[in-house]
Every structure is written in structure tokens, then in C-alpha cells.
């Protein structure tokens, strides 16, 4: 019987197993990497779920350029809420902060908690949108039949490329009543 170099084989096995473990970790590392990637490229029109305060450079004049900002409301899984933007479309000037409101009413006969998830189209425009205040930053709870106005305060940066003349911001409401303990795992 030939004696293969046991030590060498041992080393190869260790090395290969290490690759395996690292790649398993890499699979999970793809999760935060993907978020970074989304932030950089506007993939999926993902918008941050935490407030961003735009740094205004002193002396910077707001761009005179105007774009059309559209607002959409979507109920996931036919959520029994009335949910709609106060105004569907706003002409906005770049660099200037605006406030708009969404109206929500819980039509069901129990109290419910929802999480609003924002999305922007075209996706690449997302990185030029900063929200200082948003009802999507935390879960919203309404008693049966209760209604409220929810505010979004935002600014679109003058860095928005010329090729964009319209930007759509959507909010999708997800029912998270059963997941009261679950906070947002990621943003």
C-alpha cells in the first residue's frame, strides 16, 4: 500500500474546509453588502428607514430646477386600512424642503400596527432623496376605526441628474400586529 502524504492531505482538507466556512459566512455577508450596493446604485429604489439630514453647504442656492414628485400608497396583502396620499403630485424645487401627508384609517374592528416601507422609482433617484421626517421611521398603530395624518418631510438634492423630471415615492403598508416584538432588523 502506497502511503500518501497524510500531512499534506490534512493541510488540504483544513484549507478547503476553511474556504467552505468562509463562503458560508460570505453568504450572510451578502446581506449588508447588498444594502451598501443598494445605497450606491439605488437598486430597487430602496430608501433609508432612518432620518437623513442633508448637509447644506453655506452659500448654496437652491436649484431653480423643478421636478414632479408623485406619492403612492399601497396596502400589502389587502390590508384593511384606508391609506392614501393627501396630494398625489407636487411640483417641487430641488434643494428645498417640503412636507406632505398621508392619511390612514384603520377600517378593521381591532387595533393594528403597521410598518410603512418606502420605495422610489426611478431607482437611481432614491439616493438624491433625503427624508428628515417620515412615518416609515417607526411602526404606526391605530385603534379600530381610528384615523390620522402622517407626515413626510423631505428634500430632493440639486445633485439629481437632469435626466430625471419625475420621481415617485411609494409607501407600502405591511401588517406587523403579530410581530410586536420584532423591530426592524435592518435598514
Amino acid at each position: 500500500m502506497q502511503a500518501p502524504d497524510k500531512k499534506r492531505i490534512h493541510a488540504i482538507v483544513i484549507r478547503s474546509s476553511l474556504i467552505t466556512v468562509l463562503m458560508f459566512g460570505f453568504g450572510f455577508a451578502l446581506v449588508p453588502l447588498y444594502d451598501v450596493f443598494c445605497d450606491l446604485t439605488g437598486l430597487n429604489g430602496k430608501v433609508s428607514l432612518t432620518p437623513i439630514h442633508p448637509v447644506s453647504t453655506p452659500g448654496e442656492v437652491p436649484d431653480v430646477r423643478q421636478i414632479q414628485m408623485q406619492f403612492i400608497a399601497i396596502n400589502n396583502e389587502t390590508l384593511p386600512w384606508e391609506f392614501a396620499p393627501r396630494e398625489f403630485s407636487l411640483p417641487i424645487q430641488l434643494g428645498k424642503p417640503y412636507v406632505t401627508h398621508y392619511r390612514a384609517k384603520n377600517l378593521s374592528s381591532r387595533s393594528m400596527t403597521v410598518q410603512a416601507i418606502p420605495s422610489v422609482s426611478p431607482g437611481l433617484a432614491a439616493q438624491h432623496l433625503s427624508k428628515m421626517e417620515c412615518f416609515c421611521f417607526e411602526q404606526q398603530r391605530l385603534e379600530a376605526g381610528e384615523e390620522m395624518d402622517m407626515a413626510v418631510r423631505f428634500v430632493v438634492s440639486p445633485s439629481l441628474p437632469q435626466s430625471f423630471s419625475v420621481m415617485t415615492l411609494s409607501y407600502t403598508l405591511f401588517d406587523v400586529s403579530d410581530k410586536n416584538t420584532t423591530q426592524l432588523t435592518r435598514n
Binding site: 466556512v21 468562509l22 458560508f24 459566512g25 453568504g27 416601507i117 406587523v176 416584538t181 435592518r186
Partner: peptide
């Protein structure tokens, strides 16, 4: 193959342990 194992593990976490890797409701995608 470990990446696939990672993917199904995330599914398992989403399904049984309240994770939201792939659900927009919890900030996933």
C-alpha cells in the same frame, strides 16, 4: 454550496424565527 446553505438558512430564520431577510415588512428585500 455554502452560499446556498446560507440562503436556505436565512429562509429558515424568516419562516420560523421571525427574521426578515427577504421580507420588505421587516426591512428586508
Amino acid at each position: 454550496m455554502p452560499v446556498l446553505a446560507g440562503a436556505v438558512t436565512m429562509m429558515l430564520i424568516d419562516i420560523h424565527f421571525g427574521g426578515s431577510f427577504f421580507s420588505a415588512a421587516g426591512g428586508g428585500d
